Computed example of a mutant assay.
Amino acid sequence: MHFVSEMTTAAWTLLEQSSLYILFGLLIGGLLKMVLSPAYVAAHLGKGRFKPVFKAALLGVPIPLCSCGVLPAAAQLKRQGANNGATTAFLVSTPESGVDSIAVSWALLDPLMTVARPVAAFCSAFVAGVMENLLDPNANRQPMRILPMASAPAAACAGTECGCGHEHPTLPAAGWGQKLGQGVRYAVTDIWGDLAGWFFVGIAVAACITVFIPDDLITRHLGGGIGSMLLMLLIGIPLYVCATAATPIAASLILKGVSPGAALVFLLAGPATNVAALAVLVKILGKRGVAVYLASVSVVSVLCGLLLDGLYMSLGISAAATIGEVAEFVPHWLMTGAAVVLLLLSLPLISRWFSLKGCRLA
């Protein structure tokens, strides 16, 4: 019972510290969905080895999708004309970051890690995309033409004088209030629906690490250096964990003595790769593309981890000492209220999530 009490306390503390920022991140993510459609993104990701990759890596950073959720979006981008390099960059940066994970990083980690995480995600995505285009003999071919949806020709050019001969009904423009409502619904049902189950699994794993794993064991094997980075790669690459769920795990590991660089490797490699997603990636990018994808994520993650450790050392900052400091400025009643709201929003989603997992295992 003593261990159960400690785990419950640790899990609730993490939930309180992160809930307000998760709600904020979900709101921003829902609004992004309203203004950034895959068709708009794909229009900028066609021909070229560098510019489309830069755009794809940059646009993928704030979008809150996990490594499996990003697959259909990336496949659609490629069908709409994005080249392999841009598709690869989008596949890397999107699951490694997101407004929700950035917000929860601010709550559970520290400002330096919060900034380093999306920057490292962009760098790994850009390198992966450029390498894919440089090694792809078909990279400079004209991408496939982006076609309008056949089921709605009128809607595609409504309100325009396109000369196609169709009658174009005038579609009412959605106001900002309606868009906000749509964004909130999308954030709660779709974004958080995909993340809720894994987030609470991450909270539970973080609580177990806090209670059961001795500090000296982690410090001895993951205290820093390239060896700890490679070990984090071995753990993170096959593991399925979304960027938001990985954050409390990383916070608990840092508190136990893991170097911030090793934690960053886990935060990048874990969300960007998993065994289930790799099988689908072969169909999207091909075997060579997947090899470039894995190599780029691995190498850039380790390099960014080593640079981050060096930065902390040069600044004389202890990552463990600064973990969760931002949350101390938020009133406790507000953190508790946000945790209760998040739990209420999550109960039907978690029930559905476990039902789906049970059906897949049956």
Rank of each mutant, 00 (worst) to 15 (best):
V4S: 04
W12R: 06
I22Q: 05
L23C: 12
G30Y: 12
K33Y: 14
V35R: 05
L36A: 14
S37H: 14
K47I: 00
K47P: 03
R49C: 07
P52E: 14
L58G: 10
Q76S: 12
Q76N: 08
A82W: 03
T87Q: 12
L91E: 08
S97V: 10
I102V: 15
V104F: 10
V115D: 00
A116G: 07
A125P: 10
E132A: 14
D136V: 13
N138Q: 15
R145Q: 05
M149S: 08
A150P: 01
A158F: 10
C162L: 13
H166K: 09
L171G: 02
G175D: 11
G175V: 08
W176D: 06
G177F: 04
L180R: 00
V184K: 03
T189L: 15
G193H: 06
G197K: 05
W198Q: 05
A207D: 02
T219L: 11
G227W: 09
P238H: 01
A245G: 12
T247C: 07
I254A: 07
S259E: 02
A263R: 02
V275T: 14
K283C: 00
I284S: 04
L294C: 11
A295V: 15
V299E: 06
G310N: 09
G310P: 05
L311C: 10
S314D: 01
S314W: 06
A327C: 08
E328P: 01
F329G: 02
L334A: 15
L334S: 11
M335G: 01
M335Q: 15
T336L: 15
P348A: 08
R352M: 10
S355G: 15
L356K: 13
A362G: 13
